[in-house]
């Protein structure tokens, strides 16, 4: 799989982080960048977990991405190399939760993290109190 080059951050590991995140949450790289929080999350993890653990996670992810040439291969690789590996799964679960809810260990990483959770997108809604869709919008099926 292609590890997308993110223009404004000069860090290959960041690109890996975004690409493995996209594969793990089931969204496109652009959807994650659209949250505006990629860098914030990346830095937060750097500061929150053992550097060695995060590096291992990123190196494993890099190998997974580089060795997979289809989505099926990618999913198998994630299952075998991250999910099946207790330490890696714990981190992956936290990363997925971070993107879906904006929380790390139950706390919002920044004020905006709440409003940028992907959970609201999958339910075709919006975070309560933000990104309001306008009068009468709730009366019709979401488009």
């Amino acid at each position: 799989m292609i590890i997308a080059n993110i223009e404004n951050v000069d860090d290959f590991y960041y690109d890996v982080f975004i690409s493995i995140s996209a594969a793990s949450v089931g969204f496109e790289v652009n959807d994650l960048i659209s949250t505006g929080l990629g860098e914030t999350y990346y830095k937060h993890i750097l500061n929150s977990v053992e550097e060695a653990t995060f590096l291992e996670f990123l190196n494993t992810s890099k190998d997974i991405l580089e060795s997979s040439h289809s989505e099926t291969q990618l999913n198998i690789a994630i299952s075998e190399n991250l999910i099946a590996h207790a330490g890696m799964k714990e981190l992956l679960d936290k990363v997925i939760t971070l993107w879906y809810l904006g929380t790390w260990d139950g706390f919002y990483v920044t004020t905006n993290a709440y409003t940028q959770g992907l959970a609201w997108k999958v339910m075709s809604a919006h975070p309560p109190g933000a990104k309001q869709p306008g009068f009468k919008s709730w009366n019709v099926k979401p488009v």
């Binding site: 949450v25 089931g26 969204f27 999913n75 994630i78 299952s79 999910i83 959970a119 999958v122 339910m123």
Partner: peptide
């Protein structure tokens, strides 16, 4: 153990 598209679809089905 869900992740990726499978997770996204499960959440979509549950949350909607």
């Amino acid at each position: 153990g869900m992740f990726g598209k499978e997770l996204r679809e499960a959440l979509t089905s549950r949350l909607t």
